[in-house]
Amino acid sequence: MMEWLTQEILAKYNYWIAVIIILIGFYAMIAKDNLIKKLIGLSLFQTGIFLYFISLGDVGVGWGLRSGTTYIIEAIPEGYIYINPLPTALILTAIVVSVSTLAVSLGLVIRIYEEYETIEESEIIEKERVL
């Protein structure tokens, strides 16, 4: 049990933090009533996924003794290796996608507020029923 804990939880702490952030965002997206809170939850969800990807690309274990170096090609000192540039490139694209989604959804929220005078989902559903 202790071994499992150290090997799977402590040694992979970065992935677990990413999972926690993903879950926080996911919960906020489903459970929050406020539309802007939902969008913040969506952003958290996406950032968690990005953290997962970046952790995947990182190289270098231990306490700063032997480490990775960034992917800009130059003469690097002995014992260092380049980190994985591909997840970084993918996440650059994904960040752009996330900010675009955020902008479109904020546009929708503003229109919804103009239409319904509220941004709480339950109140919107009530007003819809009246209409």
């Binding site: 952003s43 950032t47 990005f50 970046i54 952790s55 690309g57 990182d58 190289v59 990775g68 170096t69 960034t70 992917y71 980190i83 997840p87 970084t88 490139a89 996440i91 650059l92 960040i95 752009v96 900010v99 955020l102």
Partner: peptide, 19 residues
């Protein structure tokens, strides 16, 4: 700090700035 400087740069500009 994880050496992904490009993503870090973008997140600082987009996440903390424009978003």
């Amino acid at each position: 700090e994880m050496h992904s400087i490009d993503v870090s740069f973008t997140e600082a500009a987009v996440g903390a700035g424009v978003s």
